[in-house]
């Protein structure tokens, strides 16, 4: 079985994610690949994503935890730090990664990013521009997309 030599760290993290999930976040490993997680994050209250349910995929590469997990939004989302393919611009997923971080910390950071979009470090130029020139309108679009694509139906 492919999962037989799974590092103890991953097993422990998985157990903890399942037994004590962080509020608004769920993550469960796929049955055939224990390194692949199906993730759901609830749109934080007071954000344009409130009421939305966002699906993500998270994969632990062979080098994990020396290398960061790979995370991507599957649900379409209007956000300056997330591009069309769902890739996320977040420092701890790149150069600020440390093996002392965990899946839980990564997901909490993504949730925080939904509460506080950062158009000054954009991944999606157009959305970031929209955000900077007319924030109210951009927020409306984000809400609209949340209703359209993340209503959880």
């Amino acid at each position: 079985m492919a999962n037989s030599n799974l590092p103890r760290r991953i097993i422990k993290e998985t157990q903890r994610l399942l037994s004590e999930p962080a509020p608004g976040i769920s993550a469960s490993p796929s049955e055939d690949n224990m390194r692949y997680f199906n993730v759901m994050i609830l749109g934080p209250t007071q954000s344009p994503y409130e009421g939305g349910v966002f699906k993500l995929e998270l994969f632990l590469p062979e080098e994990y935890p020396m290398a960061a997990p790979k995370v991507r939004f599957l649900t379409k989302i209007y956000h300056p730090n997330i591009d069309k393919l769902g890739r996320i611009c977040l420092d701890i997923l790149k150069d600020k990664w440390s093996p002392a971080l965990q899946i839980r910390t990564v997901l909490l950071s993504i949730q925080a990013l939904l509460s506080a979009p950062n158009p000054d470090d954009p991944l999606s130029e157009n959305i970031a521009k929209h955000w900077k020139t007319n924030e109210a309108e951009a927020v409306e679009t984000a809400k609209e997309w949340t209703r359209l694509y993340a209503s959880g139906a």
Binding site: M66, I92, S98
Partner: peptide, 24 residues
């Protein structure tokens, strides 16, 4: 784990010269 941490930092380039404790 220290060994792995050091090794991946060194392979990332000269940034390893300012390596810090793994705790963020």
């Amino acid at each position: 784990c220290w060994g792995g941490y050091i090794s991946s930092a060194i392979n990332d380039g000269p940034g390893c010269l300012t390596l810090r404790c793994p705790d963020v």
